[in-house]
């Protein structure tokens, strides 16, 4: 198939970027979307132009590195997948495809389609852990039984891959789904309850400092999350935060 690509090109963080048009022929339907970009890049290199830089690594939907806004949707038109799992059979011959980086003040563009998502790291550093020593000898793993539903729900929250699609999708560029998933994972486990109040306050404060927007409950994040992280986590964080601040 033949495709008309419109891709955001930006030299570096300080340069001004713009959309550039490319026409690409010979795309096969069983290629992945990123392989289609690989082909474009090979063509660009052969012409002596700089290839389009984009983030990607595992190419199997788990590392959370790939991060493209495709035709106005994070990770493209299909649901519950990352860009690397998207295949060209979701497109038709002659389609125009608009490819942009995640857009958020907290995710500045580094180059072309690559953004700096270290804000997520800093949110986690602010409290996304349980303060146990790794070198010590903790109690036996089966000392505290955990109800299966809680363990499962905690796992579902922990399935977040930190790709940032929630922020990219949200009209407010809010990081609530990401932050709340981490808060929830620990809040649902007895070993995480001990620091729950402090954790949620610290993480929310860092989230605010990073310049993400506010949650207005549109639900876009949940719809675009490749791992199906639920809005329930946001409600849980709202609850946790409220009780943490009231109780002190």
């Amino acid at each position: 198939m033949k495709l008309y690509l419109k891709i955001w090109r930006q030299k570096d963080a300080n340069s001004k970027g713009s959309m550039v048009d490319y026409t690409l022929e010979g795309v096969e339907s069983d290629m992945s979307f990123l392989e289609m970009l690989d082909i474009l890049n090979e063509e660009l290199i052969s012409k002596g132009e700089e290839p389009v830089e984009f983030d990607h690594d595992c190419r199997e939907g788990i590392c959370g590195t790939c991060s493209l806004m495709i035709n106005g949707r994070p990770h493209g038109p299909d649901s519950m997948i990352t860009v690397c799992q998207l295949h060209m059979r979701s497109f038709n011959d002659g389609d125009e495809i608009v490819i942009e980086p995640w857009r958020a003040t907290a995710f500045p563009v580094i180059k072309d389609l690559i953004t700096d998502r270290s804000a997520f790291d800093r949110i986690q550093q602010a409290g996304g852990y349980i303060s146990v020593n790794t070198s010590g000898r903790p109690v036996d793993a089966n000392t505290i039984p955990i109800p299966k539903p809680n363990a499962d729900e905690s796992f579902n929250a922990a399935a977040c891959i930190g790709c940032g699609a929630c922020v990219a999708a949200c009209k407010n560029a809010s990081a609530m789904l990401f932050t709340s998933a981490k808060v929830s994972q620990f809040a649902l486990l007895p070993q995480g309850r001990i620091e729950a109040a402090e954790r949620v306050q610290n993480m929310v404060r860092q989230m605010d400092l990073e310049g993400f927007g506010n949650c207005t409950n549109t639900g876009a994040c949940e719809m675009e999350c490749p791992k199906g992280i639920s809005l329930e986590n946001i409600a849980r964080m709202n609850r946790e935060y409220l009780s943490a601040t009231l109780k002190g």
């Binding site: 959309m19 035709n71 106005g72 949707r73 639900g219 876009a220 675009e224």
Partner: peptide
């Protein structure tokens, strides 16, 4: 965004 398809998810 140059293209933002808000209607697709909210």
């Amino acid at each position: 965004y140059v293209k933002y398809k808000g209607s697709a998810n909210a």
